[in-house]
């Protein structure tokens, strides 16, 4: 089960490199969040720590429904040039993503963290998600994809917290959900502003701001 979920998470992250229109990323993020909430459920089932269940439900609500909706709304509203723009070509970025995935496995295979009894499978996956999320932010030119990368990183951190530490205290967990939600909203608003100022979402244009 853990293997399947881990595989699903990995595939969904890699799929983020295969998209042709940026709006496709919303669906993938939603799928990723569903898998995450499934992980939390599994961990609850294995350990019996009840607030993991609460975390699972919140993941489903916030990350699987609310955040993709906000992102999709933003993309739909701005409505220009929906195709993906990258610094590298499609295949090269896929190749780098695979190299990063291998590196993540290599690093996480021997970290010897305590209490990794149930979560061993997830640790490399989460490290890979953090790497790939950062790589999405690096590779894409459209400012909205930086938001997508950020959420992927955040998902990876969430995964490591659920799998290794059996969740954070509930208050912290709520705080993080709220944080992510607010940051996505801020990203949405900022994207409107950036679009109206530069008439584009290309982050290269923002280099002109450097003094």
């Amino acid at each position: 089960m853990a293997l399947l979920i881990g595989l699903g998470l990995l595939i969904s992250t890699i799929m983020l490199f295969q998209i042709r229109k940026i709006s496709d990323s919303c669906g993938i993020l939603a799928m990723q969040a569903v898998l995450l909430s499934l992980t939390a459920c599994v961990m609850w089932f294995k350990t019996g720590i009840s607030h993991l269940l609460v975390a699972a439900i919140f993941t489903l609500l916030v990350k699987a429904i609310l955040i993709p909706a906000i992102l999709y709304y933003t993309i739909w509203k701005i409505d220009i040039k929906r195709e993906v723009e990258r610094f590298t070509t499609h295949y090269i970025s896929l190749l780098i993503a695979l190299v990063l995935a291998a590196a993540g496995y290599y690093i996480a295979s021997n970290l010897n963290l305590p209490s990794a009894k149930f979560g061993e499978t997830y640790l490399p996956v989460s490290v890979i998600m953090i790497f790939l999320g950062t790589f999405i932010m690096i590779d894409h030119k459209k400012a909205i994809m930086q938001g997508v990368g950020l959420i992927t990183i955040e998902n990876g951190i969430f995964l490591v917290a659920e799998a290794i530490a059996y969740g954070m205290p509930l208050v912290v967990e709520f705080g993080i959900f709220f944080d992510v939600l607010v940051s996505v909203i801020v990203i949405g608003i900022l994207l409107f502003r950036i679009h109206s100022t530069f008439d584009s979402l290309n982050t290269e244009k923002m280099q002109n701001l450097k003094g």
């Binding site: 982050t203 290269e204 450097k210």
Partner: peptide
């Protein structure tokens, strides 16, 4: 220090 967000992330 080129002002490019992506390179800082890298």
């Amino acid at each position: 220090q080129n002002g490019n967000l992506q390179s800082y992330l890298a």
